[in-house]
């Protein structure tokens, strides 16, 4: 009888994995960039077109890089959380305006409020590509030595800010 139990054994094994699979999200792809230094970049700064934001600008600080665009509707959902976070002054937020434009970005920030200490403008999206951006909004947390510590794809919720982002910020300070 033992060899006839083999099909059942295989099925049980598959069923266990399927069960685990129910509680996983196949869409969520962890970024291979976590634990690595941020890619090098040098982009024009919004509203100060002569100056640039580079990958070295914020060395020595713990900072949040938030990828946004005026055409991105989910960014609007996230925006109030960022305003709230900025008003608490616990961490510096830098914006990466992704595949958008100087004027539209400025208008959007003028209309909804500007939580960013600085905004780098990435019109052709190449720097975004180096950051592995694929679903705007995206948020990165970068430590003092310029290493990416955390990444969130899609809009941040207030609980994620409270429970994930801020404790990490504290520990990196």
């Amino acid at each position: 009888m033992r060899k006839y139990l083999l099909p059942l054994a295989v099925f049980v094994l598959v069923a266990i994995f399927l069960w685990r699979g129910l509680f996983l999200n196949p869409q969520e792809v962890p970024s291979p960039l976590i634990g690595k230094s941020i890619p090098e970049f040098s982009l024009p700064k919004l509203q100060k077109e002569n100056s640039v934001v580079t990958s070295e600008t914020f060395l020595g600080k713990v900072w949040v890089l938030n990828v946004f665009a005026s055409w991105c509707t989910p960014c609007l959902d996230e925006h109030p959380m960022l305003m709230e976070l900025a008003s608490q002054n616990r961490v510096m937020i830098v914006g990466l305006n992704y595949k958008d434009g100087f004027q539209s970005a400025a208008d959007w920030l003028g209309k909804h409020g500007n939580p960013y200490s600085a905004v780098a403008v990435d019109i052709d999206g190449l720097v975004g590509m180096d950051f592995g951006v694929y679903g705007v909004p995206e948020t990165f947390l970068i430590d003092k030595s310029g290493v990416i510590r955390y990444k969130k794809i899609g809009p941040l919720s207030s609980t994620e800010i409270q429970d994930e982002l801020l404790p990490l910020v504290e520990s990196l300070q």
């Binding site: 598959v14 994995f17 399927l18 685990r20 699979g21 996983l24 196949p26």
Partner: peptide
């Protein structure tokens, strides 16, 4: 078909 799920799990 199931391998990505196996690894993820």
């Amino acid at each position: 078909t199931l391998y990505p799920l196996f690894l993820d799990a």
